[in-house]
Nucleic acid binder design. Structure first.
Lengths: 213, 213
DNA sequence: TTATATTTATAGCAATCGTTATAAAAAACA
DNA sequence: TGTTTTTTATAACGATTGCTATAAATATAA
């Protein structure tokens, strides 16, 4: 069972590959995103990527492996965006709002239609019965928790929070705010409503009013 | 297309029904809960309820209608449990913790295995493409938001919160805490961890430490 | 009894599921 | 030019999908 061949090979021997695995993975992700893992037949993936089923299997193994790869990529994107938002010398409230804005920019597609969070919308459903998906979800949640907590700990050191503030407790709420936004986006909430939720949550977490952008 | 027949009929005419529609709905809910809507074939529902497919269709219409009914019942249970927790003269922190405890008692089955929230775990996945499910999810979320906000407004009136506290903002966090617990339960988090999350969140929302139970 | 009404169990429908066998197509190597 | 290697497209595999036609089973009513 050969998986994807070396991608950096200079000159392969046989018929050249007609697809771009990277682009195909993105298209597959978009498709799973809308209709979920169980709800997405493989021929929809084939149609979306323009790949034939055999090529799909040669490139990614099977449906499950393809989904796991999409999920892993999504977590990478999420963590990168979150860390970038929380990094630097921005004030705490600004950093949190930036993290939520980054997430929301994922939750609404180019066309503006809401699809919510890929993890909350597709992976969480499978997590109970699928140990690999569950592990990925749990790990991703832990990463986000840790990033928020680190930023809040820094905030207390910098004097942005009162000295008796509990960074771990505030991190729970920072994560929870991300999660509630993710859920609501999938349930059809509009962007302004979500922004308002982010603003209110941030103001409580930071202990200071956050002006509307 | 006849749906369920009059349930209170004194003496029906033909062969007596061999199933209890109420019990069957519960069994169906349990099954959907684990494997989701798209991931649960109808014959698993048939096996779980002990009903034959034709009886299932006579009683509930079709798979989609059966799921919608299960979802509606779940929301009723959730709201009833939440309102009972938030009602009465309990201190705010106690009321919130009771609401979270009630939710968590749903998220762990009798056998102790985690299955998380029925809505977050199964309905949210379908909500993007299914307008009826989306409507139910959005409505349920609004109900919970309203119940939390009402309780927090009362808390401020009672002097449990500072006069400049923002009940709407705190309600966002109270709902968000429920949501993050629901997600984490589905991702395999254990009960003590979730209790600690509820405790930390409640302490920030109420502005006072909440002792471990 | 017989007729009527309703539910049951069995079996099967066409459609779709994830996956793969097969062979033609397109490249490098000899 | 062939030979070899890899990917392609087509088609199909058995299993499963949501759903239903059919007829036997079981009740009341005449």
């Amino acid at each position: 069972m050969p998986r994807r061949k070396s991608e950096t090979a200079a000159a392969a021997r046989g018929r050249p590959r007609a697809y771009d695995a990277e682009a195909a993975l993105k298209q597959a992700t978009e498709t799973f995103w809308r209709t979920g893992y169980s709800g997405t037949p493989l021929d929809k993936i084939a149609a979306a990527t323009g790949m034939s089923p055999p090529s799909l299997y040669a490139a990614f193994g099977n449906k499950h492996a393809l989904y796991l790869e999409a999920l892993a990529r999504y977590w990478e994107m999420t963590q990168a965006a979150t860390r970038e938002a929380l990094a630097g010398d921005r004030p705490l409230a600004e950093a949190l709002m930036l993290a939520y804005e980054a997430a929301m920019s994922f939750y609404f597609s180019r066309k503006g239609s809401a699809r919510g969070c890929f993890v909350i919308g597709t992976a969480v459903a499978e997590a109970v019965e699928d140990a690999e998906i569950r592990k990925s979800v749990a790990g991703g949640l832990r990463m986000l928790d840790a990033d928020f907590e680190a930023r809040l700990r820094t905030a207390r050191e910098r004097g942005e929070l009162k000295q008796d503030a509990d960074p771990a407790a505030l991190a729970v709420l920072a994560s929870a705010t991300m999660h509630t936004i993710a859920i609501r986006a999938r349930a059809g909430a509009r962007l302004p409503e979500l922004r308002e939720i982010a603003r209110k949550a941030t103001s409580v977490i930071c202990g200071c009013p956050v002006e509307a952008d």
